[in-house]
Write a protein that binds this DNA or RNA. Structure first.
Length: 470
RNA sequence: CGGGUUGUAGCGCAGCUUGGUUAGCGCGCCACGUUCGGGACGUGGAGGCCGCGGGUUCGAAUCCCGCCAACCCGACCA
């Protein structure tokens, strides 16, 4: 491990984070406050996320589509809670084509309203339902305190929008997205042990009747909302007149949902797994799983490294070759370490003389010398091990920071270092949600003791997880 | 909007209290050489309207006035 590359301390965790982002070559601040420039490595990670998430979304039956970046201001105003929730953070375009616009347009903060307008056109009959759409796009929310990846004024995301004939169908679909797309992706691809749960009424998406969330714990104990799935009830259907004729001939409003995950997940990945030497990427999301590091080009080493890279690729491993021997080996090793590639594979003349190469694990100390001929057979299993170990490590870290509490005071204390777990009715009885909020502590999600989703906020057994959040 | 802090090279900083030739340092960058299985070393270079505007002065990075911007802590939030 390189020494003194980064010197993180618990109290300046955000600084450590910024430094990792910069040194790993992931992103820069944009020219406008709160925007960001995503560099190739950061974007490669995002692309991996997109590929994995998109596959899950399609498995859930949704199709990709695209609607406009600009939304007439009047659309936003049709749903009272929605406009109230988003007004403070809208970027509004008042001039275009050299003239003042008759009606200002807003740069979308999210697309429920435009999509609602079009769903109303596209849906006539119950046979048109469910309508399951998704779009990959960028959106703008003029947040007060931006932070690279975690909360930027402009961010990339996917937003799903669906319309259903019944309450039950919409509810089930929102839950399906939460579990089968979001939780599955975050746990099995990102190796982040998020807690899926239900938001309290005060934490809901503006215009939703229920918001489901995946909450991740960062290594400083703070929470990060990594994805949400909303039941919108008939609120948007009524505001945009999304109606259909049932098989009995009755006209009825549809039930809609919306759900999204963003580049924030890249931030969550960094803060969930990063260590003192930079990123640690779980193999399933690593753009490069194995980097074949040519130590020096002496003798047959160069050819061996190239051949090994090809062999790994043929074995289905995302492998790349680093043969830049004009740059010092140490420098390159540290560079890949910062980028978090799970398995650096060192190929040099010394090992090669004995027929070996060295496999390194980024997630923990330890190198193993492996015969060249068996590398391609060894690596896939190693990647599976690393994926599992990172999840296990993050899960243990998460659980170690969750404390059972029974009062507002204890909950506040728990939120200093991690999350508090408290019976929600007990918290409600003393107006605890409002009291905690004064200390910047929020109820991150509600869950049943068995980990399932609470049918409402009122079940006596419902557990609230409280924490500070990014 | 409230509270705190900072603007000097690509990045990170010193210098300012007590004005004074050519504004320094580390990292990074370029050249050459020695190195190079874990950010190596030496020598030599390139790179600055010292945030902006005004003032005081023989002379301002430094003192005075005004402005702007960014960051941190809160309210907001994927």
């Amino acid at each position: 491990m390189a020494k003194g590359v980064l010197t993180p301390q618990a109290e300046d965790f955000p600084r450590w984070y910024q430094e990792v982002v910069a040194k790993a070559g992931m992103a820069d601040n944009g020219p406008v406050r709160g925007t960001m420039v995503i560099l190739p490595w950061g974007y490669a990670i995002w692309e991996r996320m997109v590929a994995e998430m998109d596959a899950r979304i399609k498995d859930a039956g949704a199709q990709n589509a695209y609607v406009p970046l600009f939304i007439p201001e009047s659309y936003l105003k049709r749903e009272a809670q929605h406009v109230e929730g988003f007004s403070p953070e809208l970027a509004v375009v008042t001039h275009a084509g050299g003239e003042e616009l008759a009606e200002p347009v807003v740069v979308r903060p999210t697309s429920e309203t435009v999509i609602g307008e079009y769903m109303a056109k596209w849906i006539q009959s119950y046979r048109d339902l469910p309508l399951l759409l998704n779009q990959w796009a960028n959106v703008v929310r003029w947040e007060l305190r931006p932070r690279l990846f975690l909360r930027t004024s402009e961010f990339l995301w996917q937003e799903g929008h669906t319309a259903h004939a019944t309450y039950d169908d919409a509810k089930q679909y929102a839950e399906r997205i939460l579990w089968d797309c979001y939780a599955d992706f975050m746990i099995n691809v990102l190796a982040l042990p998020v807690l899926p749960g239900r938001k309290t009424a005060r934490e809901r998406f503006p215009g939703a009747i229920n918001t489901l969330t995946c909450e991740g714990m960062m290594r400083d104990g703070k929470a990060l909302q990594m994805g949400t799935s909303h039941e919108l009830g008939q609120n948007f259907a009524k505001a945009f007149d999304i109606t259909y004729q049932s098989s009995e001939g009755q006209l009825a409003h549809a039930w809609t949902t919306s759900w999204g995950t963003s580049t924030r997940m890249v931030g969550g990945l960094i803060m969930g797994h990063g260590d003192d030497a930079g990123l640690r990427l779980p193999p399933n999301v690593a753009p490069t799983q194995v980097v074949v590091l040519l130590v020096k080009a002496d003798g047959p080493a160069g050819d061996a490294a190239a051949a090994l890279t090809a062999e790994l690729k043929a074995a289905g491993v995302r492998a790349s070759l680093d043969a830049r021997t004009d740059t010092g080996f140490g420098r390159r090793a540290v560079d890949w370490e910062l980028k978090g590639v799970p398995v650096p594979n060192e190929v040099g003349p010394r090992d090669l003389a004995e027929g070996n190469v060295t496999l390194v694990r980024r997630d923990r100390d330890g190198k193993e010398s492996v015969p060249v001929a068996s590398v391609a057979a060894r690596v896939p299993g190693l990647l599976v091990e690393i994926q599992a170990d990172l999840l296990a490590e993050a899960t243990a870290a998460r659980d170690a920071r969750i404390v059972d509490v029974s009062s507002v005071e204890e909950a506040a204390a728990a939120a200093e270092t991690g999350w508090g777990r408290i019976n929600f009715q007990a918290l409600k009885a003393v107006d605890g949600e409002a009291k905690l909020r004064e200390k910047a502590i929020t109820v991150r999600c509600l869950r049943q003791p068995d980990g399932s989703l609470p049918p409402s906020e009122d079940d006596p057994d419902t557990i609230a997880f409280v924490a500070k959040a990014y």
